[in-house]
Simulated assay, not measured.
Amino acid sequence: MDNLVLRSHLALLLAMVLWGSSFIALKLAVTDLSPMIVVFMRMAIGAIAFLTVWPWLRHGFVYQPGDWKYLLGMALFEPCLYFIFEAQALRYTSAGQAGMITAMLPLMVAIAAFFILKERSGWRQWLGFGIAVTGVIWMTLTGEDSEQAPNALLGNFLEFLAMVSAVGYTLLVKHLTRRYSAFLLTALQSFVGTLFFFPLALASPWPDQISLSTFGLLIYLGLIITLGAYGLYNYSLTHLKATVAAGYTNLLPVFTLLFSMLLLGERLVLSQWLAIGLVFVGVLLSQDRSHRIPPEVPPAVTG
């Protein structure tokens, strides 16, 4: 393995670590600030970051007539609806459980593609979907309410709705990535998200002051995650096959669970570990090697 390929693999691994840690950062931030304020500030910081690199980002951007409806729909699903559900979800469930629910996204995309795009899904995908859903329900019902998950049932359901939004985003981006770069689409998400969440943030209760630690979390979410993780992901795509990059996204729930245990002190009972294993079995069983959704589509879980 030459140095360039090795650096690309390391870039992918670091991107997954960053995305996995974003659940913990968001969880901590929404315990100190209103969720809509957190999301607005995160989006605004990301938008400012993208503005600084816009002179380089705009090269190669050629708007295609009629794409406004796809671009608008993409932004509506994510970040708008996605972060409304996810920010609220992390008020009620733990970061680890929310991260595990994201593992269902490829299955949900395949099922949606079956009904909406009339793409064929084999019996293994349907069986895997059923097993994974069973695992998520089991994980939710067997967990006890705690400081990290005061109402896991509600929180996990809201995270599931965030994944439903991510499905709509993924199906639209499947079309858009043929015309625009993933980095450019992420910049558009930050701009639209800033405008969308601004009035919601104004309507939320603002604290007298924001602590330095919370402000640091917002910088981390808006700058390191939004700009850094996508930069690393796109760098890897220039040197590695897209299918290789897509395979790394399976590490997201693993890193999220690991960080939630190390940084938040989250603990799971034995039945929940068994349920998590069931989710992974369902995801692995449903893996579709035909890759109907192009792997270069930017991950919907933008943290």
Results as ranks from 00 to 15, higher is better:
Gly168Met: 07
Leu117Ala: 11
Ile111Cys: 12
Phe157Ser: 02
Ala87Phe: 07
Phe85Asp: 02
Val173Lys: 10
Leu153Glu: 11
Val133Lys: 05
Tyr92Met: 11
Thr140Tyr: 07
Ser121Asn: 07
Arg91Met: 11
Ala149Arg: 04
Val164Asn: 03
Gly135Glu: 09
Asn151Ser: 06
Leu117His: 11
Val133Asn: 10
Leu81Gly: 12
Val164Pro: 04
Phe129Trp: 09
Ser146Pro: 02
Gly128Thr: 12
Gly130Leu: 14
Ala132Gly: 12
Ala149Gln: 02
Leu141Glu: 15
Phe83Val: 02
Leu141Lys: 13
Ala98Trp: 00
Gln148Ile: 09
Phe129Lys: 11
Asp145Thr: 15
Glu159Phe: 01
Glu144Gln: 15
Thr142His: 15
Gln148Ala: 13
Ala113Gly: 12
Glu159Ser: 10
Ala89Arg: 04
Ala152Ser: 05
Gln97Tyr: 03
Tyr82Gln: 01
Gly155Asn: 01
Ala112Pro: 04
Ala132Ile: 10
Gly122Lys: 06
Thr142Ala: 15
Trp138Phe: 15
Pro150Phe: 09
Glu144Asn: 14
Gly128Met: 11
Arg91Trp: 07
Leu90Lys: 08
Ser146Lys: 05
Ala89Pro: 04
Leu154Val: 01
Gln148Thr: 09
Asn156Lys: 06
Ser146Val: 06
Gly130Asp: 12
Phe115Cys: 09
Leu107His: 06
Ala132Cys: 08
Leu117Arg: 09
Ser94Ile: 06
Gln88Asp: 03
Gly96Lys: 02
Leu117Glu: 10
Ile101Met: 07
Ala132His: 13
Arg91Tyr: 01
Ile101Glu: 03
Asp145Tyr: 02
Thr102Glu: 06
Ala89Ser: 13
Ser121Val: 15
Val109Thr: 10
Glu159Thr: 14
Cys80Leu: 07
Trp123Pro: 03
Asn151Cys: 03
Phe115Leu: 12
Leu141Asn: 12
Ala112Thr: 14
Ile84Lys: 00
Glu159His: 02
Thr140His: 03
Met100Leu: 04
Pro106Cys: 09
Leu105Gln: 09
